[in-house]
Structure formats: structure tokens, C-alpha cells
Design a protein around this nucleic acid. Structure first.
Lengths: 206, 206
DNA sequence: ATCAAAATCTGAACAACGCTAAGATGGCAC
DNA sequence: GTGCCATCTTAGCGTTGTTCAGATTTTGAT
């Protein structure tokens, strides 16, 4: 349940409250979504009083920012685990699939990561984590079409993938593909969609 | 400020509280965003006690659903106002531009429209409004490539546009196009982007 | 080793929120 | 006129984030 290297709680002082609160917040968001989160419940789960988190994070935003950073790290790891090949277009398809599957596997984290009202964007680690998570993406985009304007290409491709993830997560896909669940979509419909209708899958570099 | 055809408030009874509350909610969301909304403030602005909205809308979700419907109507109107031509690809570009500009002009409405936790999706008017808003879109997609699978094509194109709008609205564009404001993006960068890097602008039907 | 200083956590308070239920008010059909 | 019913008020409950004085423990300097 907990890291074995925790100093454990020695009565009054918790030991590593900061990590415990981040874990608790992440768990709440996983179970009940971003809107189900409350600072008080995170404190409750960490076995600490309601005023304790303020010392470590200042406000709820501070704690949620940490969870968002964790989210970007895990997204980056998921994209980094995608196998690469000579075919940049095929790689881009796999990355897109991984992106959407991440969103569906961690809907709470994913939503939080794109909620400017809940995270502190002035934290320099935020921009860093965001950029890092998409680095594989950017590289594969450039590999697919080295002649294109880098920022333009990355933005357009990222938008397409992010739009797919957002719409599916918000339940809009079932309006078009009537009644299909998000999991079915990710497992069956989406791969076909990416292989046929998605314009970034083709190997343009010949 | 108010519709001239309001029965006005006759002391105890408001006259048309329902509309007044919807207007108030829409105004709050315009001014302070979705998160800045509260049922109590909407009641306050309508000049009515805090328990009054419950009678008309049941809960906050009920009221917000009305605002979301209003949002879909206005989005549909914005897309419907786009001039059409023989070139379906060019039309699609204009529709995309209108979609993103709507999101930037009415960020509160736009975000609310895609917040499943704040609107009642079981309301049959929701699916109806959603479909209606995108009808021009769907038609133009089919006109652009009549051979493609309708649902697949519409979903992919919509995703692309929705992703652009979402990322810009969430402030992600300024990470790629350093420091540019959302308005500058919509006015200058986006049109060029749609004309060059966007894969759905070309006239594939020859 | 001692003891002050800093870090950490408690507990209570405050204002605001959504929701509910009991009662007051007034329009409207009969 | 009278009674019904939609409408609105008011009070209350449980919840939330934030703040702050004080209790407790660790740390570091002497």
C-alpha cells in the first residue's frame, strides 16, 4: 500500500505527508474523478487533520498541480513505451492509440492535466513536464515530414489526437458510433479509424 | 438589459424566473467561467431567494443544462453563418475557423457544453442540440469526400477541430507558439495553419 | 547536552456552497 | 368568492477551502 521507505508516522509528525497526500489525491481522482476530489478527504485518507495540507501545498491547487505533473510523467512514459519502426506514419498511429488509451485508462489524471483552473501553470515544472511528455510525439512528427514547419505540424497532429481523446472521454463518440462504450471504441473502432480515416498515418516520406 | 416582453416582477412572483435564471447563469459563466458559477449567485442576480431555482430546474445541473443547450444553439448558428462555396475543403476550413473562434468568443459556454458532470445528458434535447449544431459540419464533410465512411470522416474531422479549440482554450498553444495570445492565434496563426498544415482543407474531390 | 528556532501538525473558526423541507403568497380556474 | 396549485421565502443541514493561533516535534547551533 505504501512505500516501504517511508519513515512511517511517529505520532504527531507524519513523516512524509507530502507524498502521502499526493497519493491520496491521485487515488480520489481515479475513483471519483476530478470533481469528486476534495482537500479534506485527501487529508482524511492520509490520516491527518484538515489544516495539514496547507502547510505543504498552500492550497488545493498546489496539491492538484503535483498530481497533474504525475499525470504528465505517466503519459510521457506511456508514449515512450510505444515501439518504433522505420515507418513514421505507423509510429504516429501507435502513439495516437497510446495517447487515447492513456486518457481512457486514467481519465481523472488526463482531465486534470488540461484544467487550467485547477493547476498552477506558473510552476516552471508544469511547462517542463508538458513538453517532456510530448517529446516522442514531436520527434515522430518531424520524422514523418521533415519539411513541414515543426510547430505547425506538431500542433495539428497533437490537436487531432487530443480531440479524439477528449471527445471519447466526454462521451461524444457514442453519439456517432451509436451506443459503443469507450473501451470498445479504444479496442476496436479506433485502430481501424486511425488506419483508414486518419490523415497522419500514411507514410508521406516514401 | 432584459427582454422587453417580460411580465416583470409583480412582487412575490417573478413572472419568468426560468428565463431570467438562464440569462443570469449564462452571464456568470461568461464573466467568471464555468467554475465561477454558483446557483446562489444566479438566484441573487435574478433578484430571487436561494431556494427559488430548485423549483424550476431541480438542481444546478438542470440550470446548467439549459445554458449548454443555449451554447449548442449559438454554436450551430455560428457555423450556419459560414459562407459556402463549391470548394468543400475551403468550406471546411471556414467552418473550422468559426468553430475555434466560437470557443474563444464564448469559452464558458464552450467548456460547459463538454462537461458531462455538469449537464444532464439524458435530456433528449441535449443529443438533439448537439447533433443539430454539427449538421453543417457533417454535410460539408460528406461533400468533401462522398466515398468515405460518414461517421469515421465526421468524427476525425470534428476531433481535429475540437482538439484545436480545446488546446488553444486551455492555453496549450502558447507553449508551441511562444507567448502568443488566444486572440492573436485565432486571428493570424490559425488561418495560415488551416490553409497549410491542416489535412482537411485540400480539395480532394478534384 | 542544552536550548532556541524552525518545521510540522491540530483544532476551531468563517464564509460560501448545494440541497431539502415547511411554510407564506398570490394568480387562476371554477 | 373560493379553493387549488404553482411559485417563492426562509431556515437548516452537511459539505467545502482557507486562515490562524497554538501545540508538538525535529533540527541545528552553541
Amino acid at each position: 500500500m505504501e512505500n516501504p521507505d517511508t519513515p512511517a508516522k511517529s505520532g504527531y509528525h507524519h513523516g512524509n505527508l507530502k507524498e502521502a497526500l499526493i497519493d491520496a489525491a491521485d487515488a480520489i481522482i481515479r475513483e471519483k474523478g476530478v470533481e469528486g476530489f476534495s482537500l479534506r478527504e485527501a487529508a482524511r485518507r492520509a490520516g491527518v487533520s484538515i489544516g495539514a495540507p496547507a502547510h505543504h501545498f498552500g492550497s488545493a491547487t498546489g496539491l492538484l498541480t503535483e498530481v497533474a505533473l504525475l499525470g504528465y510523467d505517466s503519459l510521457g512514459a506511456a508514449l515512450n513505451a510505444v515501439t518504433t519502426s522505420d515507418d513514421a506514419g505507423a509510429d504516429l498511429q501507435r502513439l495516437a492509440l497510446a495517447y487515447v488509451r492513456f486518457a481512457l485508462a486514467y481519465p481523472g489524471r488526463f482531465r486534470l492535466m488540461f484544467r487550467p483552473d485547477l493547476v498552477n501553470r506558473d510552476d516552471p515544472r508544469y511547462a517542463q513536464a508538458s513538453r517532456q511528455a510530448l517529446s516522442d510525439f514531436a520527434k515522430t512528427c518531424m520524422r514523418r515530414d521533415p519539411t513541414a514547419d515543426p510547430m505547425a505540424q506538431i500542433f495539428i497532429v497533437w490537436s487531432s489526437i487530443h480531440g479524439i481523446a477528449s471527445l471519447v472521454l466526454d462521451g461524444k463518440a457514442k453519439y456517432l458510433f451509436d451506443g459503443v462504450t469507450a473501451d470498445d471504441f479504444a479496442a476496436e473502432i479506433l485502430p481501424k479509424l486511425l488506419a483508414t480515416a486518419w490523415p497522419f498515418g500514411g507514410n508521406d516520406t516514401a
